[in-house]
């Protein structure tokens, strides 16, 4: 990497991080580095001051809080995958994390970086929205919480304020009789999604009592398919309802054309990923798989 010159800080506490942010207007936070460093390599991102938060222990770790699980923002994708706690109580996260990039990236890349970057191509925004997670943000003025479903404002644009960092994430544990799925279509290992869909649904008998459907990389942010959710909630889901829900999900897609495909293809793939995610979540909720 041949970036422009930058000043490098390696604080070890959250207070130090916040102080450095206040002192250095242009400072950028370096988490796993898998979005920021490529931009710096290409000299697209101007980072005159880099605050490396990899040494901040308080930002790491996964803990059981009873009705929810607390995940430190600097927890790596690899740590999410191997967490027995998550596998048992919130299996959607490890399933989705396995589909992110490749092992080298997952060893460095963090859940907090993936969320805070605000890139619609990242996977955690959809997962967090589908889970109804809550983000804990910290600034010199104190701590506040923001629901995942109102955190993402646009491409690279989030609720994070100036001098504010994402500290930790509260994710609710999976309910009984619920099922989950993250289906992701990508061209190759390491690629962002052409389209992907996260689904969580709960059954009451055969009836779907609640469902969330959120799509990755087919709009300026992750997209919650509310009409599709409303259609399915309170019903016994069958193939024709799944088809109708997929159509509704497709109708809100607004993807950007790139080498992965044009708008039509990406929209159709969002529809197909949605069909598949609903089917898998339903089967899991029924205990069929």
């Amino acid at each position: 990497m041949i970036p422009e010159q930058f000043e490098y800080f390696a604080p070890s506490t959250i207070d130090e991080v916040l102080k450095l942010m206040v002192e250095n207007d242009e400072a950028k936070i370096l988490a796993g580095g898998h979005s920021l460093l490529p931009m710096m390599k290409l000299r697209f991102a101007e980072a005159t001051h880099l605050i490396d938060i990899n040494g901040v222990e308080a930002l790491k770790g996964i803990s059981d809080k009873g009705d929810h699980i607390l995940i430190g923002a600097m927890t790596t994708e690899s740590e999410l995958i191997v967490s027995e706690l998550l596998q048992q109580k919130c299996p959607l996260i490890p399933e989705a994390a396995k589909l992110i990039a490749d092992p080298q990236v997952r060893n460095r890349g963090t859940i907090g970086g993936d969320i805070a970057h605000g890139d619609p191509g990242n996977d955690h925004p959809s997962i967090m929205m589908a889970l109804d997670a809550i983000f804990v943000l910290q600034s010199p003025d104190g701590e506040r919480t923001v629901p995942a479903n109102s955190f993402f404002l646009g491409t690279y644009w989030t609720e994070l304020g100036e001098n504010e960092i994402l500290k930790e994430i509260q994710v609710p544990v999976a309910k009984p009789n619920s099922g989950y799925a993250y289906t992701k279509l990508k061209r190759k290992t390491g690629d962002f999604a052409t389209a992907a869909t996260a689904v969580i649904l709960t059954l009451d008998g055969d009836t779907c009592s609640s469902i969330s459907i959120v799509m990755t990389n087919v709009g300026p942010t992750a997209l919650k398919a509310e009409e599709a959710e409303n259609l399915l909630a309170g019903k016994v889901i069958d193939e024709s309802l799944i088809e109708e829900a997929a159509e509704k999900a497709m109708s809100i897609c607004d993807p950007a054309e790139d080498l992965r495909g044009d708008v039509e293809y990406k929209t159709h793939m969002a529809g197909e990923m949605t069909r598949r995610a609903i089917r898998i979540a339903l089967q899991r909720a029924k205990g069929e798989i």
């Binding site: 279509l185 061209r187 052409t194 193939e239 495909g261 293809y265 159709h268 069909r275």
Partner: peptide, 19 residues
């Protein structure tokens, strides 16, 4: 023969209609 291009052929031939 990327997925994108092959899908375009499927789509053109109407093979990708839902089951």
């Amino acid at each position: 023969h990327s997925a994108y291009r092959v899908w375009q052929k499927c789509h053109e031939l109407g093979l990708d209609k839902a089951k």
